[in-house]
């Protein structure tokens, strides 16, 4: 059974059709990549899955483990195991990164019927997760993403992902704006979190990321539709030929 199942998804923003019938199924443990040029609807898909405001779903369904996602508030989706790594992580001056994460982890644990972690237990847990994704210690103490470099922000997203242990992780252009060293570090963090119980949807503009996070399937999104799917070799094909050919074909 698929963990994530999207069927016939149509989405509009202010009356304009952005997604025009997406079908996608991701089995447990699989990593799927969605590639596409600017304006193809990649970010809209990630936002709709995470429950951001401002999108009208006009047709179709999205289920996670058989449960309707679209009726849930963002926090309830998080509790069910949805995690979105933001393309542009949000700065929150005034709240330290580690305390922010404690509030999140305990909210999710409460919703999942687990005991909350006290301050001491949480710090131990957070240090261990930071180790997994090699997050520098001083970033835990500073305000959430505030004054972080681009690479630090993306690494912090993966740190949060490690701590929240999602069933489905959506990585929205996690590679954009990163130099090759930062890309490698972030990808290592993501790969460390691959597991048979966790699915991932990696959204990217660039083939380069998929050299580091090697997907099981690749889908090409063009003008709100998936126009081609294939295995990892599709990325190389796209790199060689670009989107123009597919566009002409579509």
């Amino acid at each position: 059974m698929s963990m994530l199942k999207i069927e016939g998804l149509h989405v509009e923003v202010e009356g304009k059709a952005i997604l025009k019938g997406i079908d996608l199924a991701i089995a447990p443990g699989e990593v799927h990549a969605i590639m596409g040029p600017n304006g193809s609807g990649k970010s809209t898909l990630s936002h709709v899955l995470a429950g951001r405001e401002g999108y009208d779903v006009t047709a179709g369904t999205v289920t996670l483990d058989g449960e309707d996602l679209l009726e849930l508030d963002p926090e309830d989706r998080a509790a069910k195991g949805v995690f979105l790594a933001f393309q542009y992580p949000v700065e929150i001056p005034g709240v330290s990164n580690v305390y922010f994460l404690k509030a999140a982890v305990n909210a999710v644990r409460r919703a999942r019927g687990q005991d909350e972690l006290d301050a001491v237990a949480f710090m131990k847990y957070a240090r261990q997760k930071a180790e997994t994704v090699k997050l520098p210690k001083d970033l835990m103490k500073r305000s959430v993403n505030s004054g972080f470099s681009g690479g630090e922000k993306k690494r912090n997203e993966i740190f949060q992902m490690a701590a929240l242990e999602p069933r489905l992780a959506i990585l929205d252009e996690t590679d954009s704006g990163l130099d090759i060293d930062a890309l490698r570090t972030v990808s290592e963090g993501v790969n460390a979190l691959r597991s048979p119980e966790r699915s991932m949807l990696v959204i990217t503009h660039y083939q380069r990321l998929l050299d580091y996070i090697v997907p099981d399937r690749i889908h090409v999104l063009l003008d709100g539709r998936i126009v081609k799917s294939g295995d990892k070799s599709l990325a190389k094909e796209l790199e060689a030929e670009g989107y123009a050919e597919l566009r002409a074909g579509a």
Binding site: E75, V90, I92, P93, V95, A104, A107
Partner: peptide, 19 residues
């Protein structure tokens, strides 16, 4: 951002007000 991390809306508002 806070809600997508699982923090319920009311608590997220409290935290942002404080921040």
């Amino acid at each position: 951002y806070l809600r997508s991390r699982g923090v319920p809306e009311a608590r997220a508002r409290d935290i942002l007000t404080y921040a």
